[in-house]
Design a protein around this nucleic acid. Structure first.
Lengths: 149, 149
DNA sequence: TTTAGTGCAAACTCTTTGCAGCTAA
DNA sequence: TTAGCTGCAAAGAGTTTGCACTAAA
């Protein structure tokens, strides 16, 4: 899916195709979840040890600018990136224990957001909705622990 | 309101009362909105030029740990802090043009969030809902500009 | 007198930039 | 041949930490 779009963008912007960039992009789109620059680097370095962090950042920036990647900052300092899926907005559940990130979509919430915006004379371009807490697995674990205590 | 709570915390933790910390806290609770460490420093330095950024960060951390302040990261790298109001959760509208932050509360959205969490077997501890876009003033400005163009 | 608090400078984390060499077109 | 691409090292921004000094109790 992505490769052709990518090649067009690379061409139309007068950019060059390069081995490193191809590898970074390929690796990025192969994984599905949220990945940090550092994590992507170590994935990429499995195939080519010479790639630098700078190239990772530059490629991710390029992808983000083209709308092919989305940058997010959850809890932490560091950014994570995920492949953009056209027209498919979604929000996130972030487990504070295991760090797992799941996604959800809820049209009713978005409608209510628009209502809020209207009341405030505000025009929404985008939003961030992140639910922090504990996933099923981690809730069960801590339940067990507190029972046997 | 806050001073007594503060003094109790300071006492109960074996901390000392100090001029700088008092000034930082006083300045912080006097303003209502969202303020960055850097901004708070310049406010504080109006009254006492010798206070350092370190003290600001240390005091804000203390307040955050005590639950008297809430740290938020909107768009940018830098954190902003706001006085916590007990039991009063609210979410934010952030104008991308003028940077103004307004607040709202919407129980229906929160109920829907709980529904989503239940579906995923997820236990929510807290959430972040930020609506980015343009406030009324800024929308009007850009409208004018594009009309006269 | 003791020990927490302070400011400075240095360190740290994550990200970006300058630069000289490299390489696709 | 000529730009864009690269990795490295250095620089940035925001925040934290080590340290010697100061000051509250």
């Amino acid at each position: 899916m992505e490769p052709s779009i990518l090649k067009n963008i690379v061409k139309s912007r007068g950019l060059r195709q390069s081995g490193q960039r191809d590898l970074v992009m390929e690796t990025f789109f192969k994984q599905k979840g949220h990945i940090s620059a550092e994590e992507l680097l170590s994935q990429v370095r499995i195939k080519d040890k010479r790639v630098g962090l700078t190239t990772i950042y530059r490629t991710l920036k390029l992808l983000t600018q083209c709308g092919l990647a989305v940058e997010r900052k959850f809890n932490r300092q560091e950014s994570t990136f995920e492949p953009a899926r056209r027209g498919q907005h979604h929000d996130h559940l972030i487990c504070l224990s295991c760090g797992r990130i799941s996604e959800f979509e809820n049209k009713s919430i978005e409608t209510l957001q628009e209502d809020v915006a209207r009341e405030h004379g505000f025009f929404i371009t985008h939003h961030v909705l992140e639910l922090y807490g504990y996933c099923l697995k981690c809730s069960k674990k801590s339940e067990k622990k507190s029972n046997t205590r």
